[in-house]
């Protein structure tokens, strides 16, 4: 075996340089193939995250006369939404608050802490998050609990006798 080795060494001289060059080429080729393959896969699976957000559309949610001054009301509405390969009817909700000065506020019911749906407690006149105890007043300001901010206000207008909100 050893003599064969020497023979081989004489026939095909090898060197640390050849070994090093081949090692580099192995690394480069494998890295190139992996990156060349993984990059489009990552581009493919991350494409929904890169989709540009459309400006929120205006949606009529309630007849204006139904919301009395000082009242807070949860309103649900439906939209046809393109969801991946399908278009389906999705149900959403919004809190509307008719201030004493006549203006209307609309709040996204998602808690700014971790997204649970807040509940309006009529008796206490407070929004309470059932998950981690965030509390907000009727103006949506944070009263107590872990949320970093108050409730998210949605643009709102009254037009044609209806209350419209702009989705975010």
């Amino acid at each position: 075996m050893r003599s064969n080795g020497l023979e081989y060494q004489q026939q095909q001289p090898d060197s640390p340089i050849r070994r090093r060059v081949l090692s580099w080429l192995v690394g480069l080729i494998n890295l190139g193939v992996i990156v060349g393959f993984i990059a489009p896969v990552l581009g493919f699976i991350s494409s929904p995250a890169r989709r540009r957000r459309e400006p929120g559309e205006w949606v009529p949610v309630l007849n204006a006369h139904e919301l009395k001054p000082g009242e807070t009301r949860a309103v649900t509405y439906s939209l046809m939404v393109k969801d991946g390969y399908t278009t389906a009817e999705h149900r959403y909700s919004v809190y509307l608050y008719h201030r004493s000065d006549g203006t209307i506020l609309a709040f996204d019911p998602s808690c700014p802490h971790l997204g649970c749906r807040v509940e309006f407690k009529e008796r206490k006149q407070r929004y309470v998050c059932p998950c981690h105890g965030g509390v907000f007043d009727t103006e949506g300001n944070l009263v107590s609990g872990p949320p970093p901010t108050g409730l998210t206000k949605l643009p709102v207008r009254v037009d044609g006798g209806k209350i419209w909100i702009q989705r975010v």
């Binding site: 075996m1 081949l22 080729i29 494998n30 193939v33």
Partner: peptide, 21 residues
């Protein structure tokens, strides 16, 4: 065949890499 064995890396792995490429 005559000759000495060669280590898998980098000699055979180089051929593998070229064929994969």
């Amino acid at each position: 065949q005559k000759g000495a064995p060669q280590p898998f890396y980098p000699y055979q792995l180089f051929r593998d890499a070229v064929v994969v490429l």
